[in-house]
């Protein structure tokens, strides 16, 4: 065990962690931040996506000690300062971009990474970017719609399927 310090959602945090502790475990078990979900634990499903220094990563496949000192952002950091839903989260609610909600933290973090790099993506770009995020409920259509809406684009012509 060794002490590990990083910035999570703007706050400096420290906790003890073993060499093998994954970033996902550090967040959930070390810091009690269970918004980051672990679906497959094999880097397939994307439920555990967080940002490390602005880059989307699968936190189940990153060692916590390997990102010591980094600036980490999780789903808990996506709400507005007053606690209301952030823009992407609100779009997911407005467009029914979730059903069970398990994949949603990863979807929102992946979407945020996309919009930071490409503020007005096309539908094809959104679908390509979300390749590493698996949702077993929605069929993706409303997730894609929510991301496009969050980018400020008109989605009224995208029919619900």
């Amino acid at each position: 065990m060794a002490k590990l310090t990083m910035t999570v959602n703007g706050k400096t945090v420290s906790a003890e962690a073993e060499g093998r502790t994954l970033l996902s475990s550090f967040l959930r078990e070390g810091l009690g931040m269970t918004g980051t979900h672990v679906g497959c634990d094999t880097s397939q499903c994307g439920a555990c996506v967080v940002h490390v220094d602005g880059q989307a990563v699968k936190s189940c496949t990153v060692l916590a000690h390997d990102v010591a000192g980094a600036d980490v952002r999780t789903i808990e950091g996506m709400a507005n300062p007053d606690g209301s839903l952030g823009k992407i989260q609100q779009a997911f609610q407005d467009h029914h971009g979730l059903q069970c909600g398990f994949c949603t933290p990863g979807m929102v973090m992946s979407a945020a990474a996309l919009l930071a790099e490409n503020p007005k993506p096309t539908e094809a770009e959104v679908r390509h970017h979300l390749e590493g995020n698996i949702c077993r409920c929605t069929g993706y259509h409303n997730i894609v719609k929510a991301v496009l809406a969050a980018s400020g684009q008109d989605v009224s012509k995208i029919a619900a399927e």
Partner: peptide, 9 residues
């Protein structure tokens, strides 16, 4: 390669 999150690492 892989997906965007894999390409970050």
């Amino acid at each position: 390669i892989g997906d965007p999150a894999v390409r970050s690492r």
